[in-house]
């Protein structure tokens, strides 16, 4: 399916609005994180072969009940292995993991009924219709035989109602992904593991998926979502940044940004050329962190603790230096930049 550039622009517009909305929800989220931990890992390690191929290396993290926890990182960094350890598909080589307060290997049938798992690839039966696949999933989860209403509701949500009699092999990739999601939700699980749910689907559907994830969260579900789309970190309450089998950091999206750049960023554009002396003056201000970054002769980036309080003082300082500030604004870096920065910092440390 091709997406027009205009459509992408509109969608990205919606996406870019979300961080602000989420910042407003920060207080709510802080309260959420006081909730019990539904998943907790300590020194979680998984290696294959003779132990020389370490897929997951000493992971320590926790997932608060009712949160959306994102595991973000490039392909092959160990996200799927981590999810498999959490669901009990793999047993850890070292360390501990607790889900619902017990090791996944000890899950009872009722524990499993509380888990929904969306696998990375399409695993439904290609010769069955949408409805038959969904019905089969409901059966093996033991959903009551009076389930038609629920199945129809799910099909409505994933917008497959019109295609319920279509054979799965004739569905598009996005439709198959939606069918998989519906099958994952069929038994109304408490804890959802969604491995790359938005991989290979168009931006509109990605936004829809995240909308629904938030709906699920609002209903009290806990979601562990893996993605290689770094930008999707915006939608999560907590983000674990993974790289080469390690979790480099776990934090809220806002804190990740702050930590990656040592604070918040203020972008300044002036009419005059910004000289070395001007930059030194700004760097000496007590709320400015580190060096001022030069973009070009008239543009700089200043890192501060709190952009909102720093902006008036920065304007004042610039005027004292004889600089005419054309624009000054708080800059929210993209998560692609944040991610690269975190990786680079880890590289410098090591």
């Amino acid at each position: 399916m091709e997406t027009s550039p205009l459509l992408v622009t509109r969608v990205m517009g919606i996406v870019n609005k979300i961080p602000l909305k989420r910042l407003q929800m920060k207080a709510q989220k802080d309260r959420d994180f006081e909730l019990p931990k539904i998943i907790e890992t300590k020194n979680l390690t998984k290696s294959f072969g003779d132990g020389d191929e370490v897929a997951v290396n000493s992971i320590d993290l926790y997932v608060p009940e009712g949160s959306i926890f994102g595991l973000i990182g490039p392909s092959g960094c160990g996200k799927t292995t981590t999810v498999r350890l959490m669901t009990g598909v793999y047993q850890p080589t070292e360390g501990e993991i607790s889900v619902f307060g017990k090791r996944p290997a000890e899950f009872s049938t009722s524990d499993r009924e509380k888990i929904g798992y969306l696998i990375q690839q399409f695993v439904m039966y290609p010769d069955l219709s949408v409805w038959e696949n969904l019905n089969f999933a409901a059966s093996f989860y033991g959903v009551s035989i009076f389930r038609n209403k629920r199945l129809n509701k799910l099909l409505d949500f994933v917008e497959l109602s019109e295609h319920k009699n279509k054979i799965s092999r004739f569905l598009s990739g996005g439709m198959n992904r939606r069918l998989s999601l519906a099958a994952t939700l069929v038994h109304n699980p408490e804890l959802l593991f969604l491995d790359e749910p938005t991989a290979g689907i168009d931006p509109i559907l990605r936004v829809k998926f995240w909308d629904y994830f938030r709906q699920l969260q609002a209903e009290g579900h806990t979601l562990v979502v893996t993605t290689q789309y770094v930008g999707e970190a915006e939608y999560c309450d907590l983000v674990g940044v993974m790289y080469a089998g390690r979790v480099l950091t776990v934090n809220t999206p806002e804190e990740l940004r702050r930590k990656a750049f040592g604070g918040e960023i203020v972008h300044i554009v002036t009419s005059e050329r910004i000289e070395y002396i001007h930059r030194v003056h700004l760097e000496k201000l007590p709320f400015v962190k580190g060096n001022v970054a030069i973009i070009n002769d008239n543009e700089i980036k200043v890192f501060v603790d709190d952009a909102d309080s720093a902006i008036p003082q920065l304007i004042e300082s610039c005027q004292e230096e004889g600089l005419d500030v054309q624009t000054i604004e708080k800059q929210i870096p993209s998560f692609d930049d944040v991610f690269v920065r975190i990786i680079e910092e880890r590289g410098n440390h090591e």
Binding site: G88, T109, V123, M124
Partner: peptide, 14 residues
């Protein structure tokens, strides 16, 4: 081979 066995492993299906 299709991968659905992984789903069965996690599901309550004994």
């Amino acid at each position: 081979r299709s991968g659905i066995m992984e789903l069965f492993k996690v599901a309550p299906l004994k």
